[in-house]
Write a protein that binds this DNA or RNA. Structure first.
Lengths: 248, 248
DNA sequence: AATGTACATTGACGCAGATCAACACAAGGC
DNA sequence: GCCTTGTGTTGATCTGCGTCAATGTACATT
């Protein structure tokens, strides 16, 4: 998933996160050429499924624009979102042939893909790429574990505050906002999707958002547009120690 | 974390998971020598903390014997376990200098360690090691995400059944049990530690274990020794589609 | 035997969040 | 205009699990 580090690294190449300075400044140029050769783009509409859990997945890639979600579903229909993919986030599992989760586009989505086997070949010859991928995967692991704390131990109100503060921070770094001043952005998820991320029902999500609004922690314009007058206050509501946690 | 794959790979070298066939059959022998040079062992007693979250961590390594936990704690003391380390599991973050979680030995523990910077150097020269580490990290990521479903969407009873079935399966593969027949093993965690893993209170854990026992899903001898008469039944209780899920 | 400590079980009670249900509002399509 | 569909809000009620508290069990220490 996205974090300040991978994002910063991504600045110099909007369309292909693998090929950014952090990796490629150290790579030989013919390796870069080869990456370029096996690269292609895929476009999805909002609501479309990118891959189904268990299906063969013969590419790896990253999000160029739009938002996708990773979800798991039990037989009886209970679902849990296990990841949120924003621009520059990586998808795919070198060394695996099938997808472990449903990947769904929640907005229109553009992905930059590489066919898996040539990509793996390249990884074998280019240690920096494998190392870079390892770092990105460790970031995702941190994010997933951070989220385990949210799911296991936080109250509904704290969960909502956590989610909003994560989205706010991602959005801020995406637009290179330099700290301070009120943040404003659109929630990229429906109430139901938030509920699936937070392990709540959509009614509880709605109620808690209303409560945070009433208490002045956030302002709402319409149903989606949020402004945050005081980020520290929000993080306090989220139960985070100021500017410490939340790697996502 | 442990799974069938990393475990199988581990069979041929009990003391050092990095140096098993899956990686090293393809490595040059002088690289192996160098790994050997920077390797050392550390021993911890039950209850000792291996590293504190935020502390400098200048090694990576893996569990040789015993059990350790990864936990996160909020300021007010709420804690969530985010990982369970069993023999052959890897700890550490190439490319990071500080620990992200508390690592605590819950039993006497032996770890096989490598100083971080020489290990990283080696990774840079030996693509297979980076790739192997990437695969292991992807396994952990799957496990963490699988656990997000448990934390976010399962009932207390299902959570307990999930935990017991995971421990049962790990134990079975550790002893190379070939399917079928009742499984028997000791729970390696206190009720409190289970509660921290499952996002429950220890009272609820105790109650649900009693309930599963009363309903014949498990048998209990003393407080820790469990036998499972019917694994399929247990997995049904866990809400897993038979032999599908649960990668941990 | 007496005492302490760590771990586990069980009961009584209350509340946060789920569930069920009604309603609001905007955007299309006809 | 009217109807439908997707999305969000709010209320009333129910319940699973947390909280508080008492009790039990096994072992170690003196």
């Amino acid at each position: 998933m996205l974090n300040e580090r991978s994002l910063a690294a991504h600045q110099d190449c909007k369309d292909c996160p693998i090929r950014h300075k952090a990796v490629c400044a150290r790579c030989e140029s013919d390796e870069l050429e080869r990456l370029e050769e096996i690269k292609y783009y895929r476009r999805f509409e909002a609501g479309q499924t990118v891959v189904w859990s268990g299906d063969r997945m013969d590419f790896v890639g990253s999000v160029v624009s739009g938002i996708a979600t990773l979800t798991q579903t039990m037989e009886d229909g209970r679902t849990q979102m296990v990841g949120l993919l924003l621009p520059s986030d990586f998808v795919g599992r070198p060394g695996r042939s099938t997808a472990a989760y449903d990947v769904v586009a929640t907005t229109d989505l553009v992905m930059c893909c590489f066919r898996k086997s040539p990509f793996e070949d390249m990884m074998g010859r280019t240690p920096h790429i494998a190392q870079r991928l390892l770092e990105m995967t460790l970031d995702e692991l941190d994010a997933a574990r951070e989220w385990m704390l949210v799911l296991g131990r936080k109250t509904a109100r704290e969960k909502i505050a956590s989610l909003i503060s994560i989205i706010a921070r991602r959005d801020a770094s995406l637009h290179m906002r330099t700290s301070d001043g009120p943040l404003a952005f659109d929630l990229p998820l429906t109430r139901e999707a938030m509920a699936d991320y937070l392990g709540l029902t959509l009614e509880t999500v709605s109620r808690q958002i209303s409560a945070l609004k009433k208490d002045g922690v956030i302002h709402l314009e319409g149903k989606r547009h949020v402004t945050i007058p005081d980020m520290d206050r929000l993080m306090e509501e989220a139960g985070d120690d100021a500017d410490g946690g939340m790697l996502v």
